[in-house]
Computed example of a mutant assay.
Amino acid sequence: MIALCSTSFLLFVSSGGLIPSPAQAASVCTAYQVRATGHGGLSTLLRVTLPTGLPNRAPQPLGLAVNSIGYAQAQGLVYGIASRDRSGKFRDGGHVVRIDLNGAITDLGPVRRTGAVPVPWSGLIDSYAGTVVGNRLYVREWDKLYAIDIDPRSPSFLGLVHAVRLDWHWLSDDLDDFAHNPADGKLYGISNTGHGHGTLVKVDPGNGKVTKVKVLKGLPGSSTYGAVVLDPADNGLWVLNNDYRRTSRLYRIQLGDNTITEVNTGPAVTSTDGAGCLKSTPPPATTTPPPVTTTPVPPPAVIPPPPPPRTTTPTTTRPAPVIPPPPPPPSRATPPPPPPVKPVVARTPPRPTPKAQASSSLVRDQRRWTVVTVVMLIFGSGAAVRIVRSHR
């Protein structure tokens, strides 16, 4: 639902302005909007709550320039026409796109001919206004109204099934968006009539007849109304004027008596489109699960934890392997005095013990002199005997 606009109803709330009336606040719905930041830019999807215009999810880039969107209630999906992607403008005409309520977008390919209705040379790449009636996406391009089959079960899926010329050109040429009213089957929108006032019009999608409902003096006529959303619960028509005196303006029109309420204002916009007025708001990206009421269940039996692994040294019940003790280290105590040396020749001195090895060098010298003395005595005795025998 747009022509050459750029932001969405979100802008009205952030800028401050008029407060919605109690009647408006009583009817709450969610509208889907696509917007671009400039001519030829790619679109971002927004889900906003009316009448406040506040987003209920963060903006989501789509990677395509999308316009002429409408909400298919039977499918729970949004359909529209994409004119370009990141590579540039499509060469085979406009592509039908499908957007689910979580923002996932699917490029279904170009509009094709499946029956008697030919596809225009543009391939509907220049379409602006859009809405869904049943399983048909109605879009306006220049002075004609086209219907595309969006029923996936139909053999004419994505094909043109209807085309009609709009009869009142000066009104229809400025009709940049419309919304389907199930009460009478007509498409309602605001025609920009130059520097005058906006004109409420309705279009018969069957024969293309355009009817002027009323010139609304409370609506400025110097800018296009790029987004139009209808709330069928109270016949409230929400319309967005893109740029009036460098300001975008959101209005609510009560169909029937055609009373006007200016709801809010915001910065001027350049490209935007909207669809749907869903009473069931889709869940936000992050939600808190509701509390669950259940019958209390007795707690399970407490099982004591297993004992921790033993880290103590083995007890006598598990004897350790027997390892021969190492020889005792030399004592650092003061060694006892050496035993007296007995000059006995016949006995060989006992093998010294580790303690005897630590005796003083004096004891060893005494033993050496004792041995020398004994040898000398032996040799001396032998010499004396030889002398006596020589004298005999």
Rank of each mutant, 00 (worst) to 15 (best):
C5E: 13
F9P: 13
L10A: 10
L11P: 09
F12K: 01
S14T: 09
G16V: 15
G16H: 02
G17H: 03
G17L: 04
L18H: 15
L18F: 15
A26Q: 12
T30L: 06
Q33D: 02
R35F: 12
T37W: 09
G41A: 15
L45P: 11
V48E: 04
L54G: 15
L54H: 03
P59S: 03
P59W: 00
Q60V: 13
A72M: 11
A74S: 12
R84G: 10
G88Y: 01
H95Q: 07
H95W: 08
I99D: 03
T106P: 13
T106Y: 13
V117K: 01
V119W: 04
G123K: 07
Y128I: 13
V132R: 04
R136L: 14
V139Y: 00
K144D: 10
L145F: 08
A147T: 11
D149F: 10
P152Q: 02
R153H: 11
R153I: 07
V164N: 06
V164P: 12
N192P: 01
N207V: 08
L216A: 06
Y225S: 10
L230I: 08
Q254A: 13
L255R: 14
L255E: 00
V269E: 07
T270I: 12
D273N: 11
D273I: 03
P282L: 01
P283V: 03
T287F: 13
T293E: 04
P300N: 03
P300F: 04
A301Y: 00
R310T: 04
T315P: 13
T316W: 03
T316Y: 05
R318T: 15
A320M: 11
P325R: 14
P330W: 00
P337W: 01
V345E: 10
P352W: 00
A358L: 12
A358C: 11
A358M: 06
L362T: 08
V363A: 14
R386A: 15
R389Y: 03
H391Y: 08
